[in-house]
Amino acid sequence: MLDGLLTAFVIGGLICVLAQLIIELTPYSITPAHILVCYVVGGAVLSGLGWYQPLVDFAGAGATVPLSGFGHMLVQGVFEAVGEEGLKGVFTGGLTASAFGITVALMMGFLVAMIFDPKG
């Protein structure tokens, strides 16, 4: 039950620390949105190079929960779809694989906005 919890904690934490370092050590013009985009694209590139999967194998949620895992998921989805459907898969694979995450986030966004008011 507690297998891999510590590695997930350490690797996940380190991935976040890297982002914190980027924020602290770069000019103010690097905003949270830039970081999020960099992580998704970075995760996608690492995944394309075949370097992210070993990290997932090692750290589990420590590698899939950060947004770089989102990029990894997109690319793995594309790879799988290309294997099955060829060229068409290039365009369908990414969003298909990540559909659950985006859909849940949008749904929750809508629901929460309906129920709650911003507290400020």
């Binding site: 991935i15 976040c16 949270p32 929960v65 986030a105 906005a113």
Partner: peptide, 22 residues
Amino acid sequence: AGSMVPISGFANSVVSAALEFK
């Protein structure tokens, strides 16, 4: 960054924007 980079930060950015502009 510890709460921004995990998928929870992504959810927060979606929900906070929806909430703020309701």
